[in-house]
Simulated scan of single mutants.
Amino acid sequence: MPDRLGKRFDAADYDPKDPDPWLALWLDTSLPIDDDAKAALLRGHDSYSRRFLLPFLRPFVFVFFVLVHIVRRVFLHWPNLPKALHSLIHWGLKTFATPDANLLIMRHFNIGTEILAFIKANAGPVTIESFPLRPKTLADLKDNVFLQHDLNIYNFIIELNRDLRAQGRDLSPPGTLDLSMITDGPFEFEDFPDGPLNFADIQTAIELYTPLYALFLPKNDFVRAANSLQLDETIAIYIAKILGTDYHLGFIKNGHPMVPLSTFEAGHRLMLHGLDAEGIHGWLRVLKRRQAAGLPIDPATPPGSVS
């Protein structure tokens, strides 16, 4: 993979008569995304799995999704098999997903935990029961990690705003910004499987497992999970209040949850959700570096000024 990265995203290969769109996105710095995550995402987009297999499978996935929705109209709570779902996801990722896809999935839970921890640490006196998700191996995902991820975000929003309302205040910039929970560097994961069957890119894997998520979990759990994908803007607004700057809101493309989108779009929105999270975490990493260098937290603040 590193060899391909060097060849695929090498500016020396640039041809003005035939510019590579993936090279353009690799060199682009408009989003402060981790280089490893960006490379993994772009390699997935340029893979045979994403370009040829996914378009072929999409009609079948849609039909299956429609059938699942019909079943869920009748059986709201059955089946309810979260452990079987997570075991199936673990098996599928281990057996068919590329190392890039597994890296992005594992990163997502870790950076999501750090983003919520950042808000909690800088929100002032609030009581929020945390369930940090720090999977390091694919086997860790079997512990209901996907379901807990959805529960974490809703419980966090409810408990945070319950306390803020009770105290009659809103989030605001703290005296000293705490960025200690933000990892500036690679996460320590296991070596992911890279056998002959590990061909599925991140988007193909997501779009295939999304209807299974709807089938194996009660209707309320799936609808809650699908709607949670639009909470990126809510979280980004909380961070804007803490930072005193809304620059990073330009990264968020998933829409506000006050106008929920169709659950049939959940696969695509899950991709946007992952991109939003990487953008927010990358921006907090930039601010952490600025803080360590003694620079104003807000890059728009001239050097020597008080941010």
Rank of each mutant, 00 (worst) to 15 (best):
F96W: 14
F96V: 03
T98E: 04
A101I: 05
N102D: 11
N102F: 08
L103N: 03
L104C: 02
L104N: 03
L104P: 00
I105V: 14
R107C: 03
F109L: 05
F109K: 11
I111L: 15
I111N: 03
I115W: 04
L116S: 08
I119D: 04
I119G: 06
I119Y: 11
A121Y: 07
N122F: 02
N122D: 09
N122Y: 03
A123H: 10
A123S: 15
G124N: 10
P125I: 08
V126N: 03
T127H: 14
T127S: 15
T127Q: 14
I128A: 03
I128Y: 01
E129G: 09
E129A: 13
E129L: 10
S130Q: 14
P132R: 03
K136M: 05
T137K: 15
L138I: 08
L138N: 02
L138K: 04
K142Y: 00
D143M: 06
D143G: 02
F146I: 09
Q148H: 11
Q148W: 05
Q148V: 12
Q148N: 12
H149E: 09
H149N: 12
D150N: 13
D150A: 13
D150R: 11
L151N: 09
N152V: 02
I153H: 12
I153T: 08
Y154G: 04
Y154K: 05
Y154P: 00
F156Q: 01
F156M: 02
I157N: 10
I158Y: 15
E159S: 13
L160H: 08
R162D: 14
D163N: 10
R165I: 03
A166R: 15
Q167E: 10
G168D: 06
G168H: 08
